[in-house]
């Protein structure tokens, strides 16, 4: 029987992975997350067209249910702009222009947050409530869950920005083990290079954020234009 492992082997000896593994994992996770997100919002797309075609009790969309196109367009445009900025940030990071990436990333974060604020403004000023028929239900449900997804993605962006700012002075390489995880008391098998973490996270985030912005455009088309 070939010996492939021994219980007594020192853990630190076997630790250490190919450095590109993290990037590959995050990359596939970004795509998988995007497909899951697509199926999530597919339910709302289906609900929109299904309820619209049924128009039960003629309550699909009473006259006063008419959200502000201006605000909706602004929310959509800011989301797309934010995704674009992150994409440009990726290009900067690849070209080792780290200061530029940090600036674009921060701008993207701000744009995303403004989009969320505007979405809240739209809900409050819409002049109709969730109970006003099928369209109102789909509108509120879709935008609300979209905000949740956007918030999660912005949290991810913030993480990468925070890491980038924290290690802005080091060219690359590992900080001290305890320091790296933010918890000195922990047994660390820490990620050695925070900068590679930013890169692999950023590539994946950029894809996912662009995808989510695309879904935002879809929502805008379906909810405002059709």
């Amino acid at each position: 029987m070939s010996d492939v492992a021994h219980p007594a082997t020192e853990y630190s000896i076997v630790e250490g992975e190919p450095p590109e593994l993290m990037g590959r994992n995050l990359n596939s996770a970004g795509h998988l997350l995007a497909s899951a997100t697509a199926f999530f919002f597919l339910a709302f797309v289906f609900a929109y067209f299904y309820l619209r075609s049924l128009n039960n009790d003629h309550l699909w969309r009473p006259k006063h249910v008419d959200p502000s196109l201006t605000l909706g367009t602004l929310v959509m445009a800011l989301t797309v702009a934010s995704a674009l900025l992150v994409r440009l940030g990726v290009l900067d990071h690849r070209a080792a222009r780290r200061a530029q990436w940090r600036l674009k990333g921060a701008l993207a974060l701000v744009a995303g947050l403004i989009a969320i604020v505007l979405q809240f403004v739209e809900w409050v000023s819409a002049g109709f409530g969730p109970a006003d028929g099928g369209y109102a239900s789909v509108f509120i449900g879709w935008t609300a869950f979209n905000v949740l997804f956007v918030l999660g993605t912005l949290f991810w962006l913030e993480n990468l920005l925070a890491t980038a700012f924290r290690y802005r002075r080091i060219p690359s390489g590992a900080p001290a083990p305890g320091e790296a995880s933010g918890d000195a008391g922990r047994l660390g098998h820490d990620i050695a290079d925070p900068l590679s973490l930013v890169r692999s996270g950023l590539e994946s985030l950029s894809f996912y954020w662009a995808f989510l912005a695309g879904l935002g455009v879809l929502a805008w088309i379906v909810l405002y234009l059709i």
Binding site: N56, A131, G133, S137, G141
Partner: peptide, 21 residues
């Protein structure tokens, strides 16, 4: 999530007399 909104925010995704199904 839609069911939760129906039960809390009073949306009408699934209520036929409110435009849902």
């Amino acid at each position: 999530g839609m069911a939760m909104l129906d039960r809390t925010a009073q949306t009408t995704f699934f209520i036929p007399s409110g435009g849902g199904s």
